[in-house]
Amino acid sequence: MPQYLIYFHQQWVGEHDAEWFAERGRLVNDVVEDMRRAGVYVFAGGVDENLDRAFSADATSGTLTIADGPYRRHEVDLGGLTVVDVEDDDAAKLWAGKVAEACGWPQEVRRIC
């Protein structure tokens, strides 16, 4: 079965209070548990928002360089991701919809090649 990446950018989250995030966390955990029961769960997690703790590896010059910070600063930064192993696009859409509803912000989906 193909795997799909369901992800969001941190900038899509918006400003919310701690209580709102706590409720969303419970909803997301329920969706992840549903994924496990359905046998489609591969991985899910949020990404550290602090770009000062990021680092990059680049070998495009022919010499490996490891550097502190992101490879490049972007207007949008990855916020979190989920990987599911499902039958087809329709099943990926179903799970992406459940994740989007639980999180309260948009999700983008791409098939993993």
Results as ranks from 00 to 15, higher is better:
residue 50 N to K: 06
residue 88 D to T: 01
residue 5 L to S: 06
residue 16 H to T: 04
residue 36 R to I: 13
residue 45 G to H: 06
residue 107 Q to R: 07
residue 76 V to T: 15
residue 1 M to F: 02
residue 52 D to V: 00
residue 95 W to P: 03
residue 76 V to R: 15
residue 11 Q to D: 15
residue 37 R to V: 15
residue 17 D to Q: 02
residue 61 S to D: 07
residue 75 E to Y: 09
residue 25 G to T: 04
residue 82 T to S: 11
residue 2 P to H: 02
residue 59 A to E: 09
residue 91 A to N: 05
residue 37 R to G: 12
residue 36 R to Y: 09
residue 101 E to M: 11
residue 28 V to I: 05
residue 24 R to W: 01
residue 101 E to L: 12
residue 47 V to M: 15
residue 46 G to E: 14
residue 58 D to K: 10
residue 73 R to L: 07
residue 92 A to L: 07
residue 99 V to I: 12
residue 67 A to Y: 01
residue 23 E to F: 01
residue 39 G to C: 06
residue 93 K to F: 13
residue 80 G to C: 14
residue 94 L to Y: 10
residue 39 G to L: 02
residue 97 G to D: 04
residue 17 D to R: 00
residue 69 G to T: 04
residue 35 M to P: 03
residue 23 E to V: 08
residue 31 V to P: 00
residue 59 A to T: 08
residue 103 C to G: 10
residue 42 V to S: 13
residue 2 P to W: 03
residue 32 V to C: 07
residue 106 P to L: 03
residue 98 K to P: 06
residue 73 R to C: 02
residue 22 A to L: 00
residue 62 G to R: 09
residue 104 G to W: 06
residue 101 E to F: 08
residue 38 A to N: 10
residue 98 K to V: 15
residue 24 R to K: 05
residue 46 G to K: 14
residue 45 G to K: 07
residue 43 F to L: 10
residue 42 V to D: 12
residue 88 D to A: 05
residue 83 V to D: 06
residue 6 I to P: 05
residue 104 G to V: 06
residue 93 K to L: 10
residue 78 L to K: 02
residue 20 W to L: 08
residue 68 D to P: 06
residue 1 M to S: 01
residue 50 N to C: 01
residue 100 A to T: 11
residue 7 Y to A: 05
residue 64 L to D: 08
residue 27 L to I: 01
residue 84 V to Q: 10
residue 49 E to T: 08
residue 90 D to M: 01
residue 58 D to E: 08
residue 3 Q to D: 09
residue 13 V to D: 01
residue 105 W to S: 01
residue 76 V to G: 13
residue 104 G to S: 10
residue 22 A to C: 04
residue 91 A to L: 02
